[in-house]
Design a protein around this nucleic acid. Structure first.
Length: 269
DNA sequence: ATAGGGTTAG
């Protein structure tokens, strides 16, 4: 369809620019037509297009996410050889690809190479590596990178916090998850509904009686901050409190219902 | 102008 329009453009004498070509190239990757993408790239070269950093970044990312890491790397080096200078987006694409389809160690090498070459990593760069560490179960290094990110003036966003908190809890370390959660409170990044759901759910995965008061505290806090818990979450925490002998706390949370318009229907105490 | 991130919970 896009190609149809492209043809029409040419027929009507509108000359496609490099931007046109780059968009079409990305289209091939989005429809997983790798061979067509490669052929189109060669055609661009044949037509003496001034292939730029966007073209190469599209190629590196496109082949990489499709699992063709070697090709991705080869294109990166070819680009440098052709005198096209990579930028932060190019490095980010490669780092992302290595995290997802290769391994974190190689991704970190590229990340550090980027820093050595005086490129300033941005939140996208940190996001990729931190997720890579989480996925590899390297939570200590994920946390260290998060600290480094902040030190460099990149404030992690809620989604970033949620991911790391989730992986910490998933590794059974709810304490570390809560620690990170507390850090959000005094920063410029406030927890959202997902943050609370992730933490409360983790408490029910671990099933420790002592944790239930924490779950209750979180539920109360989220309601106070205007986040509406799902019926499932609400009932489950209240049930848990009752079963662990914390009726008073359960009642206190229930009394919130009068103040908040439409809390989920409560259970009978 | 076009490229790089993101879903984690019953």
């Amino acid at each position: 369809m896009a190609l149809q329009v492209f043809k029409e453009m040419v027929e009507r004498g509108i000359m496609p620019t490099l931007v046109t070509y780059n968009i079409i190239l990305k289209g091939y990757f989005m429809t997983r037509q790798l061979n067509e993408a490669w052929e189109f790239f060669l055609e661009m070269k044949r037509r003496k297009c001034e292939i730029n950093v966007v073209t190469y970044t599209t190629m590196i990312y496109g082949f990489g996410v499709a699992g063709e890491v070697k090709k991705s790397k080869r294109i990166f080096y070819e680009m440098v050889g052709e005198g096209v200078v990579p930028n932060v987006a190019t490095y980010n694409a490669l780092v992302h690809v290595l995290c997802k389809k290769d391994n974190v160690e190689n991704a970190v090498l590229v990340f550090e190479e980027m820093v050595v070459k005086r490129f300033v990593p941005n939140s996208v760069s940190y996001n990729a590596v931190i997720r890579g560490f989480c996925h590899a179960g390297e939570m200590e290094r994920a946390l260290r990178f998060m600290a480094r990110m902040e030190k460099e003036g990149c404030q992690p966003n809620v989604q970033m916090y949620n991911v790391v908190i989730w992986y910490l809890c998933d590794a059974g370390d709810i304490e570390k998850g809560l620690e990170l959660f507390e850090k959000m409170g005094d920063g410029s990044c406030l927890p959202n509904l997902d943050t609370y759901n992730v933490l409360i759910s983790a408490i029910f995965v671990r099933k420790k009686y002592e944790d239930l008061m924490v779950a209750g505290k979180l539920l109360l806090e989220m309601i106070n901050r205007g986040f509406l818990p799902r019926k499932f979450t609400f009932n489950r925490v209240l049930n848990g409190l009752v079963l662990t002998g914390n009726q008073d706390f359960a009642r206190e949370i229930l009394s919130m219902q009068s103040r908040c318009g439409r809390l989920p229907r409560q259970l009978k105490l």
